[in-house]
């Protein structure tokens, strides 16, 4: 049932994207209201789905890759709705809604519904870890959208000697401000997520496995963001114009590498310690800090709480 709802959500966001794209061809006084109505309706369904899985199924909102993708898409959708209400004349959806769609489609197709393993003794730390990584990812996605808008507007104006008329983009100053804030917020959130991941790994295993692709790709991402922050603070021109946009695009690439490492590393997707020590297929782990190995952990969690008794059948 959940997968069906996710497909419906994808359809709703696709309709919203189509409505946004019609801005290229014609003006309409009704489109704004229709757009807000469609997205609001989609977000209500989206919220209900996330809430249902959180409350009714006893799942954390980011307890599996499926939930994580859904929640990230929801957050981006809320950001989009907010920006649309405050900037009704700007086609922000053309840049933001594809990202929302990618996350929703990822949830519908490749993401697993089997929950990550969670340690009862480090529940708060694990929540901080998951939440900060989620916010950091959403912020990088938003920065990508504003950065791309900045580059399109700036390059068009310099080459064509006039503003983009087909799409009325926000001012360069606003785009630059949002992109810079996204970069700095991403640094804070992803660093926090990374550090808490390391601490979790240290607590559980007494050491951090730096050869793990997830660990080194995450450290690469955080290191890059830190370097960007230092670059921006030390070198004043780096705070201006296209440099910020290019830095955000690069950050997005580093994020993609980290996400790819997380999804493609068998230890992170597909292993979950069970009550008797065995790991069922398709279970994930939350922590980026260290890979769990089959039977290495025994979390006495109730089956209802973990919910892995019905993989893929929710």
């Amino acid at each position: 049932m959940n997968t069906t709802v996710v497909w419906i959500l994808a359809l709703v966001y696709l309709v919203a994207l189509a409505l946004e794209l019609t801005r290229i061809w014609f003006r309409s006084s009704l489109r704004g209201a229709a757009l807000v109505g469609v997205v609001l309706g989609g977000l209500i369904v989206h919220t209900a789905l996330v809430g249902y899985r959180w409350v009714a199924l006893g799942r954390d909102p980011f307890s599996s890759t499926f939930d994580w993708c859904l929640l990230a898409a929801w957050a981006l959708g809320v950001v989009y709705l907010y920006l649309t209400l405050y900037h009704p004349n700007n086609p922000l959806g053309i840049f933001l809604l594809p990202l929302v769609l990618v996350l929703v489609l990822a949830a519908a197709t490749v993401a697993s519904q089997v929950p990550f393993a969670q340690a009862q003794e480090a529940q708060i730390l694990a929540t901080v870890h998951g939440l900060s990584l989620l916010v950091g990812t959403v912020v990088v996605f938003l920065g990508l959208a504003t950065g791309v808008m900045y580059l399109i507007s700036a390059i068009w104006m310099r080459r064509m000697h006039r503003p983009v008329r087909l799409l009325r983009l926000p001012s360069l100053e606003w785009l630059q401000r949002i992109t810079t804030r996204c970069l700095l917020l991403a640094l804070v959130c992803l660093s926090l997520g990374f550090v808490t991941g390391l601490v979790l790994s240290q607590l559980r295993h007494g050491h951090v496995d730096w050869s793990d692709p997830v660990v080194w790709s995450s450290s690469l991402l955080v290191g890059w963001l830190a370097a960007v922050a230092v670059f921006i603070l030390v070198y004043r021109p780096a705070r201006q114009g296209r440099k910020v946009a290019y830095l955000t695009l690069a950050s997005f690439v580093f994020l993609l590498i980290a996400l790819w490492a997380f999804w493609s590393t068998p230890g992170h997707v597909g292993k979950l310690p069970t009550l008797n020590g065995s790991a069922p297929e398709g279970s994930d782990q939350l922590t980026w800090g260290r890979r769990y190995t089959r039977g290495s952990l025994r979390f006495p969690l109730p089956r209802r709480k973990l919910g892995y008794d019905s993989p893929g059948g929710l």
Binding site: M157, P163, V164, S171, L172, E173, R177
Partner: peptide, 10 residues
């Protein structure tokens, strides 16, 4: 209205 406001927000 069209050039300056496309670059500056305020």
């Amino acid at each position: 209205a069209e050039f300056a406001k496309q670059i500056f927000e305020r």
